[in-house]
C-alpha cells in the first residue's frame, strides 16, 4: 500500500516508461482476451502466436524479398513524386500567371482518390509494378506540390524587396530567397508524402498483386487463411511505416536544424 502509489508516481513521471507500459499492456491484453475466450482465437490469435509467426517469417527468404520489394517500390515512387512536386511547385509558384492558370486544375485533380485510378492503371499497364507506381506517385505528388506552392508564395515581401534593391539576379533570388523559404514547406510535404506513398505501395501490392511485396504476402496469407501470419505481416507493415515516419522526421530536423521557423500543419 505504501509502495504502490510511489511506483505509480515514478512511472507517471517518466513518459518513456509509461509508453512502454502501454505497448506491453496492449500486447498482454491481446494475449489474454483470446485465451479466456472473450475474443475468438480463430480470428484473434494471442500475441505469443503472432510473435511466433513473425519469427517464422523472419527466417523465410521470401519474406525478406517482399520487404525489399515494398521498400524499393516505395522509394522509387516517393522519389519521382518529390522531384516532380518540387520542380513543378517552384516553377508554377514563381510565375503568378501560371499559378492562376493552374489553380482550378490542381484543385480539381488533387481530391481525386488515387484508388479510383486503379482500374485504369491495370488496363493501361501490363506490368503490375507500373500500376502500383502510378497510384503511389499520384497520391504523394500532390502533398509535395501543394506544400511547395505555399512555400514559394510565402516569401517575405520585405526580403523580396531587399533582394530586388540589391539587384540580385533571378538565379540568386531563387537560391538565397525562394529556396530557403520553401525548404521547410517542402520537407513537410515530403514527410506527408512518405507516409501516403507507403500506404499506397502496400495497398497496390495487396489489390493488384504480381510484385514482391508485403501487401501481396498479406493477400497470400489471407487466401490460405494463415491468420497469425496475416497479423505478423500487418505488424511488419506497421514497423516499416514507423521506421519511415521516424526517418522522415529525423531528416526534416537535420535539414532544417539551421532554420528558425517551425512549420506546423494547419489549414492552408
Amino acid at each position: 500500500m505504501t509502495t504502490s502509489p510511489l511506483t505509480l508516481r515514478r512511472a507517471g513521471d517518466s513518459p518513456a516508461l509509461l509508453g512502454l507500459l502501454g505497448i506491453v499492456g496492449f500486447g498482454a491484453l491481446l494475449e489474454i482476451l483470446p485465451r479466456v475466450g472473450v475474443l475468438k482465437e480463430e480470428y484473434f490469435p494471442p500475441t505469443s502466436k503472432i510473435i511466433a509467426a513473425l519469427i517464422d517469417e523472419l527466417g523465410r527468404g521470401g519474406f525478406w524479398q517482399a520487404v525489399i520489394g515494398t521498400v524499393s517500390t516505395w522509394l522509387i515512387g516517393l522519389s519521382i513524386a518529390v522531384v516532380a512536386g518540387i520542380v513543378l511547385g517552384i516553377v508554377i509558384g514563381s510565375v503568378p500567371a501560371l499559378r492562376l492558370a493552374t489553380a482550378s486544375t490542381i484543385e480539381f485533380l488533387r481530391p481525386i482518390p488515387s484508388v479510383a485510378l486503379l482500374p485504369l492503371a491495370i488496363v493501361l499497364f501490363s506490368a503490375p509494378i507500373r500500376s502500383i507506381l502510378l497510384l503511389v506517385v499520384y497520391a504523394s505528388f500532390w502533398q509535395v506540390l501543394i506544400q511547395v506552392l505555399h512555400g514559394v508564395t510565402d516569401v517575405d515581401p520585405v526580403a523580396r524587396e531587399t533582394a530586388a534593391s540589391y539587384r540580385l539576379n533571378r538565379w540568386r533570388q531563387a537560391r538565397y530567397l525562394v529556396w530557403p523559404t520553401t525548404l521547410p514547406y517542402a520537407m513537410t510535404g515530403i514527410r506527408l508524402a512518405a507516409s501516403v506513398a507507403l500506404v499506397l505501395t502496400i495497398t497496390g501490392e495487396l489489390l493488384i498483386g504480381g510484385t514482391k511485396g508485403i501487401g501481396e504476402e498479406i493477400a497470400v496469407a489471407q487466401s490460405s487463411i494463415a491468420v497469425p501470419s496475416m497479423y505478423a505481416l500487418i505488424v511488419v507493415s506497421g514497423l516499416i511505416g514507423l521506421i519511415a515516419n521516424l526517418a522522415t522526421r529525423r531528416a526534416e530536423r537535420l535539414v532544417l536544424a539551421w532554420h528558425p521557423s517551425v512549420r506546423r500543419e494547419l489549414p492552408l
Binding site: G12, P15, L18, G19, L20, L21, G22, I23, G25, F26, K40, Y43, F44, S195, L198, V199, I202, T203, L206, L207, I214, G215, I218, A219, Q222, I225, V227, M230, Y231, L233, I234, V235, S237, G238, L239, I240, G241, L242, A244, N245
Partner: peptide, 29 residues
C-alpha cells in the same frame, strides 16, 4: 497527460499500419 504518455507510442505504431492491410482481416472476422 498520463494517459497520453501511456498510449502515445502505441498510437504511433498503430497509425503507421497502412489501414488497407486490415481489410482482409476484417473481412475474415
Amino acid at each position: 497527460r498520463r494517459l497520453r504518455a501511456l498510449v502515445e507510442p502505441l498510437l504511433e505504431f498503430l497509425r503507421a499500419i497502412p489501414p488497407p492491410v486490415l481489410v482482409p482481416i476484417l473481412i475474415l472476422i
